[in-house]
């Protein structure tokens, strides 16, 4: 609680600046909601392509997050616990997807997943195609969002006292048992944060996904297509629905996470 003597000019200034920033985030979204009528929303919800695109975004992003977590979590553990040559470079590589333009990321991914590439050919053997396919969408989403999971998990593991892992070893536990019963549960909150962030970031990805798979359309691409083909008025209701779904999921997961 603020006490009266805490209201200094500096605090007032910072509160004002912070408030302006919050407004910057909230106002455009609120504006979108206020400018959409109930009938427009109902119409958008009834549209099959809107519903399908939102569902596609949700499940591909979820699948990407879960699939890649099997690679990201062990890597995060190694980064938190071990020192090795060129570790800084590895840490840097992990952040690359955050800084490169996502369209460029999409082009890069496309290069690896076309049917001519070795990965494409290999996947073809199992009847999997990436381009224009949910598998490609998953790859593109994971590429741009994986740093969020790795970084959060690495920080989570680093915060687990190494002493506890050592004590567990002296108590006869194997390193694998120590990982699954001590390190992972104690880092779980951070990992969950990372999973939520990765999932949210992947779901909202546009640039990389549109290059790898214009169709089937994820929600961001559908919104974009409606905007370019039919204009703002027609794209806003779909955007409102997608944003609402995202926000609901986000709030639900944040609340669940607090209870973990």
């Amino acid at each position: 609680m603020y006490k009266l003597n805490n209201i200094t000019p500096l605090n007032l200034l910072f509160t004002f600046l912070g408030g302006a920033l919050l407004l910057f985030i909230v106002a455009p979204i609120a504006g979108m909601y206020l400018n959409t009528s109930g009938s427009e929303l109902t119409e958008a919800i009834k549209a099959k392509d809107v519903r399908e695109s939102i569902w596609l975004s949700l499940w591909t992003s979820m699948a990407g997050t879960l699939l890649f977590s099997f690679l990201a979590i062990p890597l995060a553990f190694i980064l938190a616990r071990k020192d090795f040559p060129l570790k800084n470079i590895v840490n840097g590589i992990i952040d690359i997807p955050i800084i490169i333009p996502h369209s460029a990321a999409g082009i890069a991914i496309l290069g690896v997943v076309t049917r001519e590439s070795w990965l494409g050919k290999f996947a073809d053997l199992f009847g999997i195609q990436f381009v224009g396919n949910p598998a490609g969408i998953i790859m593109a989403m994971a590429f741009v969002s994986i740093p969020f999971l790795i970084n959060a998990a690495r920080d989570g593991f680093a915060a687990v006292p190494e002493r506890l892992e050592k004590v567990a070893l002296t108590l006869g536990a194997s390193p694998a048992r120590v990982f699954f019963t001590i390190s992972l549960p104690l880092a779980w909150r951070s990992i969950l944060s990372g999973l939520i962030l990765m999932w949210g970031r992947g779901m909202s990805e546009f640039g990389a996904v549109i290059i790898v798979a214009y169709n089937p359309q994820t929600a961001p691409i559908l919104i974009f297509e409606r905007f370019t083909s039919f204009g703002l008025k027609y794209s806003v209701p779909a955007a409102v629905i997608f944003v609402s779904v995202c926000l609901l999921m986000f709030v639900f997961l944040r609340v669940t996470k607090k209870k973990v």
Partner: peptide, 15 residues
């Protein structure tokens, strides 16, 4: 884990 030696610290070693 094969040494059969336990270590107990001043604090913060329980899971």
């Amino acid at each position: 884990q094969k040494r059969k030696i336990s270590i107990v610290y001043q604090d913060s070693d329980l899971f």
